[in-house]
Amino acid sequence: GKRLNIQLKKGTEGLGFSITSRDVTIGGSAPIYVKNILPRGAAIQDGRLKAGDRLIEVNGVDLVGKSQEEVVSLLRSTKMEGTVSLLVFRQED
């Protein structure tokens, strides 16, 4: 696979993607993946982020050990017109 650095500018329609966690172990944390890209928002305008990408970092914060809720609040904490920096891991087909 490969790592991608993606910067998304948060506009009025938001970042435009949803996340999910897979393989949750009890008391553990699961990897966070991009669930889908919404028809409006920064992600589809940028065009690089894809469903199935694994989020590794948000704005330089390592997501290991973070819950899905914590990751959502990290993403939401970005101000309007601010930039969210994502490091994602993509499995090659």
Score class of each variant (00 low, 15 high):
52 G>T: 01
11 G>H: 11
60 G>T: 03
12 T>Q: 14
70 E>D: 13
79 K>P: 10
32 I>L: 13
50 K>C: 06
21 S>G: 06
30 A>N: 03
42 A>T: 04
72 V>M: 11
81 E>L: 09
51 A>M: 15
69 E>A: 08
87 L>Q: 14
44 I>D: 07
60 G>K: 04
80 M>H: 15
33 Y>T: 06
40 R>Q: 11
83 T>M: 12
20 T>M: 11
11 G>V: 08
51 A>C: 07
37 I>A: 01
43 A>P: 02
89 F>K: 10
88 V>A: 07
90 R>C: 03
83 T>S: 11
37 I>L: 06
66 K>T: 07
71 V>W: 00
21 S>A: 05
44 I>G: 12
49 L>C: 01
1 G>S: 09
4 L>F: 15
24 V>L: 10
55 L>W: 03
7 Q>H: 15
86 L>H: 00
75 L>K: 01
15 L>K: 00
54 R>T: 06
44 I>H: 11
80 M>T: 12
78 T>C: 10
67 S>G: 10
66 K>R: 08
30 A>L: 10
53 D>F: 00
84 V>R: 00
5 N>A: 12
17 F>N: 00
87 L>P: 02
55 L>N: 00
42 A>C: 02
56 I>T: 05
92 E>L: 08
33 Y>R: 04
7 Q>P: 06
43 A>C: 02
53 D>Y: 02
46 D>N: 03
70 E>G: 06
1 G>Q: 05
8 L>Y: 03
2 K>R: 12
50 K>N: 06
93 D>R: 09
91 Q>I: 10
49 L>K: 03
84 V>A: 06
68 Q>H: 14
31 P>W: 10
24 V>P: 15
2 K>V: 07
48 R>L: 04
88 V>L: 05
13 E>V: 04
26 I>E: 15
20 T>G: 09
83 T>V: 08
25 T>F: 10
27 G>S: 15
87 L>K: 15
74 L>F: 06
39 P>A: 06
22 R>G: 07
64 V>F: 11
14 G>I: 01
15 L>C: 03
5 N>W: 10
91 Q>G: 13
31 P>I: 07
31 P>M: 12
86 L>G: 02
88 V>H: 01
25 T>N: 09
74 L>D: 04
69 E>M: 09
64 V>A: 14
88 V>F: 03
74 L>I: 11
26 I>V: 08
8 L>M: 11
5 N>D: 13
82 G>T: 12
84 V>Q: 02
89 F>R: 06
73 S>W: 07
68 Q>W: 10
72 V>A: 15
80 M>I: 14
5 N>P: 06
92 E>N: 15
50 K>V: 06
44 I>M: 12
92 E>V: 13
32 I>Y: 11
90 R>N: 02
12 T>V: 12
55 L>E: 03
92 E>A: 08
81 E>A: 12
31 P>C: 09
69 E>H: 09
47 G>E: 05
49 L>E: 04
67 S>D: 12
38 L>M: 14
37 I>P: 02
60 G>E: 04
91 Q>L: 11
85 S>F: 08
79 K>V: 09
21 S>W: 08
57 E>S: 11
12 T>K: 15
90 R>H: 04
19 I>C: 03
70 E>H: 07
56 I>F: 05
92 E>K: 10
18 S>D: 15
31 P>A: 10
25 T>R: 11
41 G>Y: 01
87 L>V: 11
77 S>G: 14
41 G>M: 00
15 L>A: 02
82 G>A: 14
80 M>K: 15
76 R>N: 15
2 K>S: 08
12 T>W: 06
91 Q>C: 10
81 E>N: 14
9 K>D: 07
37 I>T: 01
63 L>T: 11
57 E>L: 06
9 K>M: 10
43 A>F: 00
81 E>F: 14
4 L>T: 04
24 V>S: 14
84 V>N: 03
29 S>I: 10
7 Q>R: 15
12 T>D: 10
5 N>I: 09
67 S>W: 02
19 I>T: 05
74 L>C: 15
13 E>Y: 08
91 Q>H: 15
73 S>I: 08
54 R>H: 06
56 I>Q: 06
46 D>S: 04
47 G>K: 02
82 G>R: 08
80 M>E: 15
56 I>M: 13
71 V>Q: 01
78 T>L: 12
46 D>I: 02
42 A>Y: 03
45 Q>P: 02
67 S>Q: 09
39 P>D: 13
35 K>L: 10
32 I>E: 05
8 L>T: 03
39 P>R: 07
61 V>A: 06
68 Q>L: 12
7 Q>N: 12
1 G>H: 04
92 E>G: 10
86 L>K: 03
25 T>E: 15
59 N>R: 02
36 N>C: 11
57 E>A: 12
41 G>N: 00
75 L>T: 02
78 T>G: 10
5 N>R: 12
42 A>P: 07
42 A>G: 07
40 R>S: 11
66 K>L: 12
3 R>Y: 14
48 R>P: 01
64 V>N: 10
88 V>P: 02
81 E>W: 12
51 A>N: 04
67 S>L: 06
21 S>K: 08
86 L>E: 01
63 L>R: 02
34 V>A: 14
12 T>G: 08
58 V>M: 09
26 I>R: 10
19 I>Q: 00
76 R>T: 14
20 T>H: 09
74 L>S: 05
88 V>N: 02
91 Q>K: 10
48 R>K: 05
2 K>C: 15
8 L>Q: 00
13 E>D: 14
64 V>G: 10
90 R>Q: 06
79 K>W: 11
23 D>K: 06
7 Q>I: 15
54 R>S: 06
35 K>S: 12
82 G>V: 08
47 G>F: 02
44 I>T: 07
3 R>M: 14
22 R>Y: 09
74 L>P: 00
35 K>Q: 07
30 A>W: 03
48 R>I: 05
51 A>S: 09
5 N>C: 14
25 T>K: 07
75 L>G: 02
85 S>W: 06
67 S>I: 04
26 I>D: 11
43 A>S: 02
46 D>F: 02
67 S>R: 12
81 E>S: 11
71 V>N: 00
70 E>R: 05
35 K>R: 10
35 K>T: 11
75 L>F: 11
38 L>T: 09
82 G>I: 04
92 E>S: 11
17 F>G: 00
53 D>C: 00
19 I>D: 01
2 K>N: 15
31 P>D: 12
46 D>V: 00
44 I>A: 12
48 R>S: 06
82 G>K: 15
4 L>R: 02
51 A>P: 08
33 Y>A: 05
22 R>P: 15
79 K>Q: 12
15 L>N: 00
72 V>F: 07
76 R>D: 15
18 S>K: 06
16 G>R: 06
40 R>L: 09
55 L>I: 14
83 T>G: 05
76 R>H: 09
25 T>G: 04
68 Q>F: 07
18 S>W: 11
49 L>A: 00
50 K>I: 05
56 I>P: 01
25 T>V: 06
45 Q>M: 15
76 R>K: 15
15 L>D: 00
59 N>A: 05
83 T>R: 10
61 V>S: 07
83 T>L: 12
65 G>E: 06
51 A>F: 03
38 L>I: 05
23 D>G: 13
58 V>F: 12
30 A>Y: 08
61 V>H: 11
78 T>D: 09
45 Q>E: 12
91 Q>E: 14
39 P>K: 11
49 L>V: 00
61 V>L: 08
17 F>H: 00
41 G>W: 05
38 L>R: 12
93 D>E: 08
84 V>S: 02
80 M>C: 13
63 L>N: 01
31 P>F: 13
36 N>L: 05
74 L>T: 06
62 D>R: 10
23 D>I: 08
29 S>M: 10
33 Y>G: 00
51 A>Q: 11
43 A>W: 03
36 N>I: 04
8 L>K: 01
23 D>N: 13
6 I>T: 01
62 D>L: 07
80 M>V: 12
65 G>C: 06
19 I>V: 12
84 V>H: 02
20 T>C: 15
84 V>T: 09
32 I>P: 01
73 S>V: 08
70 E>I: 04
76 R>S: 15
67 S>E: 09
44 I>C: 13
55 L>V: 05
50 K>P: 00
17 F>V: 02
46 D>W: 05
2 K>L: 08
76 R>L: 08
65 G>T: 07
20 T>D: 09
31 P>G: 08
83 T>P: 06
77 S>Q: 13
40 R>W: 13
77 S>H: 10
75 L>I: 13
62 D>N: 13
85 S>V: 07
64 V>Y: 14
65 G>I: 02
35 K>N: 07
25 T>Y: 09
41 G>K: 01
5 N>M: 10
31 P>S: 13
78 T>E: 11
38 L>F: 15
3 R>T: 10
21 S>C: 15
2 K>A: 04
45 Q>H: 13
38 L>Q: 13
37 I>V: 10
70 E>N: 05
47 G>H: 03
82 G>L: 07
1 G>V: 07
59 N>Y: 00
11 G>I: 08
77 S>E: 15
1 G>P: 03
87 L>E: 11
3 R>W: 08
44 I>Q: 10
75 L>V: 06
43 A>K: 04
8 L>P: 02
2 K>I: 09
19 I>H: 01
86 L>A: 01
86 L>F: 05
59 N>S: 04
47 G>V: 02
41 G>H: 02
46 D>Y: 02
